[in-house]
Design a protein around this nucleic acid. Structure first.
Lengths: 371, 371
DNA sequence: GGATAAATGGTAAACGTTTTCCATGCGTAA
DNA sequence: TTACGCATGGAAAACGTTTACCATTTATCC
């Protein structure tokens, strides 16, 4: 059965006005056809008047637009999309939407998208590859024109990615950008927007070293993510550059969560020699870490210095306030959306690989070593 | 010009296999038609085999499914949606996605939706009515089957809402539910899911009173939101029930943000008599408030007790840990999605107006009065 | 005034599905 | 054998747009 019932039969009535009322109030459908009929013109003209205004006379344009407005005509975008092969949807695949940093990125992303007439279908992958693929299907099944993904791999089966016959859909890789070295030629071409995680982590480590710390523990994010690998590389780089000993047992593999910061800090406190500083790869972990330290009666930064990463909203309001790396959240989101839309609409694009500046923000949680 | 170029002409070639390769690799299109052609059957059979399996023989079913799998056929959901008038999209309109509480709701909402085969189009309204309406249009223009909205009014122009001829689309009102008294009959029928904000705030206030506080300042959320009004009513209720004096100058109108908590706390500290407790209508404000109090050298809860609302992730990790009202975030999101989908799919629905339980969580930021 | 070009609006073919009919073939019962 | 019903698959109509292609009118220029 087709979902829409057949057009309702109207009783014959001499009262034309009455009929019209019936028509207006009973007819559940108001398409371009009805609008055209109402105006006594062809549907082509209606379509043109609404979406291709200089193709029709000024008079027609105004008449149609007025009627559309008055009767409340809404374009059926499904039909339009089918015909034009453009949906004006983009899908954003995020590992964890409730993460404060991600939420900020998404928010500005959506704002930029809506300004260009696009809506965002968002999918929380929960770090699960199968889910990523499911969201990737949304573009393959024409529900979206392109995809922004936060994981290191495009949300398509590698079988497809490797096949030359598979036209890569418009996509942008955000934040979690794989090291280009490990990629096949095809994947190397995928546009991305990120910060230089390695440099940022290196800078942050250097900051701690400058304050006299030489034994710096690390609480990482999810170990298989590029951001974690890159940040770790940055840490190592600074340790080496300063001729400090790189102690592998000071590196604790965690996840980007508060809980991870808590539990790994407990591990750190079990060490024979407690390090004088802890570098956390996200602010949430740092907050968890500081909580545990305080619980154990340690002062920050006097006993242990703590640094975070991301500069989420709460970093400035923790006790003590948190030294961290600020990412240009707003800009990342906005640029991702705009870049993707440029690609979809085949605009001239200056750059497809963008590394945005980060900033070391020094607050109370780190200070010159005092023991 | 139609976006798809005309079918590419193949050179005549004796080598059938070669041709097939060309076909496979050059043809950018693989629709149901091509699949049917490939199998030498009608498109009707393909469609049935894939989506209406008991309508065809087992043999056909398997043959088609195997081929679809092998060739990587993806249904064009646009066409399907157009035909069936179902998009499997729902739009969620949120005033602020980067708000930790909202983000949690949305996350579980999306999870529930995806499990039932729906995707979420989300829109951040930034509290702006015009934006809300724009997102509401997504369902009117058939891009989504229903809408979940976090504001007190449905995202449709009141002209439409009041008109009997406008069939209300499937919708669910989440968290910010208007007082039914102020609504027209039609709006009264809108399903909602929320907690009892009034009771919760009353309970929280009572908790403070029980600890000996009699002058309790309030930092509200956005004053025109139902949640703020209801929480304020709850506050008043408890103040009155305990025969305390209701001092209007202790009520500070803010927004649901950290900054609001900060700046209004500064105002509070300018009072002649500083109240002994501050009730904040969201945890973020409470965090801001505590930050300012500490900045001014006051101890929490000894000098001033602070309570929040929502029990966001960080409430447990602030210093001191925050007394607050826990909302069943996970459940709210999940139930919203499921209720809306039930409505869309016209399932039997037990309840359309759901009030979920909240819970008072007592932590360190409130304690018996000590001055 | 006639030829040509530009502006305008209509007709109808797509877009890729789903589903209503219908035709066929086959098994079963009378 | 006839009749009937059921299982199966095909043809074709719809879903609501956009747009290529025409046909007509109007303006312009000699």
């Amino acid at each position: 059965m087709h979902p829409r019932a057949k057009s309702c039969k109207l009783e014959v009535s001499a009262n034309r006005c009455f009929l019209q009322v019936i028509f207006k109030s009973m007819s559940n459908k108001l398409g371009i056809k009805e609008l055209a009929q109402h105006l006594g013109i062809s549907i082509a003209s209606v379509s043109r008047a609404l979406h291709n205004p200089n193709r029709v006379s000024k008079e027609m344009r105004e008449r149609v637009q007025a009627a559309a407005e008055e009767l409340g005509y809404k374009q059926n975008t499904l039909a339009s999309s089918l015909r034009t092969a453009k949906t004006k949807n983009i899908v954003a695949i995020i590992p964890d939407l409730s993460d404060t940093f991600n939420a900020g990125v998404i928010r500005s992303m959506e704002d930029a998208a809506i300004q260009r007439g696009y809506s965002i279908l968002f999918g929380d992958s929960q770090g699960d590859r199968a889910r990523e693929l499911r969201y990737g299907d949304l573009v393959q099944s024409k529900r979206a024109d392109g995809v922004i993904f936060f994981s290191e791999r495009p949300p398509f089966p590698s079988k497809l990615l490797d096949s030359e016959s598979f036209a890569l859909p418009p996509m942008v890789n955000s934040c979690e950008v794989a090291d280009l070295d490990g990629l096949t030629i095809r994947n190397k071409e995928i546009p991305y927007i990120t910060i230089d995680n390695r440099a940022a982590a290196s800078e942050l480590t250097q900051h701690l070293i400058d304050q006299g710390h030489s034994r710096i523990a690390v609480i990482t994010g999810d170990p298989n993510t590029p951001s974690t690998e890159q940040r770790l590389a940055g840490y190592r780089q600074s340790i080496n550059a300063n001729d400090l000993e790189l102690e592998e047992e000071l590196i604790f593999e965690g996840t980007y969560t508060i809980e991870s910061g808590q539990s790994l800090t407990k591990e750190i406190l079990k060490l024979d020699h407690i390090p004088t500083a802890i570098l956390c790869m996200c602010d949430e972990s740092a907050i968890g870490s500081m909580h545990t330290l305080k619980e154990q009666g340690l002062s920050i930064p006097e006993d242990v210095a703590v640094a975070g990463f991301d500069d989420i909203r709460f970093a400035e309001f923790s006790t003590p306030t948190l030294t961290t790396i600020a990412q240009p959240v707003e800009d990342i989101g906005r640029k991702c959306a705009n870049l993707l839309i440029d690609i979809i609409e085949k605009e001239d694009i200056k750059e497809t690989k963008i590394i945005l500046p980060h900033k070391l923000v020094i607050r109370e949680s780190t200070a010159a070593i005092s023991r």
